[in-house]
Computed example of a mutant assay.
Amino acid sequence: MKQLLLQIFTWWNGQTMGTRFFTWRHGKRVGEDEMGNIYYEGTMTSFGLPRRWVVYKGYAEASAIPPGWHGWMHYRTDTPPTKETYVARAWEKPHQANLTGTAAAYRPQGSIAAKGERPAVTGDYDAWTPGS
């Protein structure tokens, strides 16, 4: 019941009823990424390209799409990652979603949100005042 109400009244928790119906009518499942997001391809757009969309698992956050799927979603490649053997380079870091606004967000030294003390002011800065 909760899932049904979320689909009716919210767009940020997975798919809405409209997206579910559109996917049922026009979508062809292309694949799924390691985070559980499901990717679809459907009818042609007015530009002559197949329409592509993703149904997020949980909260709809665009930065949760891994690099390989991002390239496919934005028509940089026509081959989805599920149909190719992609091996990450040694220098590539694993994909991480944007953590801004969460407890795990980056907080540099001196930030109000960071723990600890702010560094002392060195005195080499003179504030601007009008008329000086």
Rank of each mutant, 00 (worst) to 15 (best):
T16Y: 05
T10W: 03
T77L: 05
T85H: 11
G58T: 00
T45V: 06
I65Q: 01
V30P: 01
W69Y: 02
G110W: 08
I112N: 13
W11H: 10
G48I: 02
Q15N: 01
S46K: 14
A114C: 12
R25Q: 10
M17T: 04
A97N: 05
E92H: 06
R76C: 04
E34D: 14
F21H: 08
A113K: 15
W53T: 05
R76A: 11
V30F: 01
Q15G: 02
K2T: 04
G110P: 01
T43A: 10
T43Y: 02
L49V: 02
I112Y: 12
A64V: 03
V55I: 10
P81D: 04
G27I: 01
A97V: 10
V87N: 08
I8P: 03
N98E: 02
Q109P: 03
G36M: 08
Y75D: 12
F21S: 07
A97R: 07
R76Y: 13
N37A: 04
Q15T: 03
K28E: 13
F9T: 09
H74N: 14
T102A: 09
L5V: 10
P119Q: 11
G71S: 06
F47S: 13
R118M: 11
R107Q: 14
T79V: 15
Q7V: 01
Y86P: 00
E32Q: 15
I65S: 02
S46F: 09
W72H: 04
P66K: 03
L99E: 12
K93N: 11
G68H: 05
N13F: 13
R51W: 13
K2H: 07
P119C: 10
E84A: 13
P50Q: 13
W24I: 07
V87W: 07
F22H: 10
G14D: 07
G48C: 02
A104M: 11
T102M: 09
K57R: 13
G36L: 11
A60L: 03
T79Q: 11
